[in-house]
């Protein structure tokens, strides 16, 4: 792959990482720790929202984030012709 293409591929990868890790940080450190008191004023079913994020929601989000990453990167690999097939 040419130098320019490689740079472009890497930049796109870094952009995905920034977005996904931003969400990762927001749900775990934001919703579950820093803003937990404010979110606890909101009730969803039998849960206070902040507590739900801290003990359930953040874990679901983590799993989803990885699978989104897998999907995005597989597409990106194909687009730049660097996939393994």
């Amino acid at each position: 792959m040419s130098e320019k293409n490689l740079n472009e591929y890497w930049k796109r990868n870094l952009r995905y990482l920034a977005i996904l890790l931003g969400i990762w940080f927001f749900v775990s450190y934001g919703c579950s720790i820093l803003f937990v008191d404010a979110l606890n004023n909101i009730k969803i079913g039998g849960f206070k929202l902040g507590f739900w994020f801290a003990q359930q929601g953040s874990i679901y989000v983590f799993v989803i984030l990885i699978f989104i990453y897998v999907y995005l990167m597989n597409k990106l690999d194909k687009e730049f012709g660097v996939d393994e097939d």
Binding site: L21, S28, S32, I33, A54, S58, I59, I66
Partner: peptide
Amino acid sequence: LISFMGYQGAQYLMGWTGGYVLLALL
């Protein structure tokens, strides 16, 4: 641990799962 810590137990729940996002992405 969570049973006796309540909300605070989240440090183990998130701490021992959130690292996999870093592993997978980085």
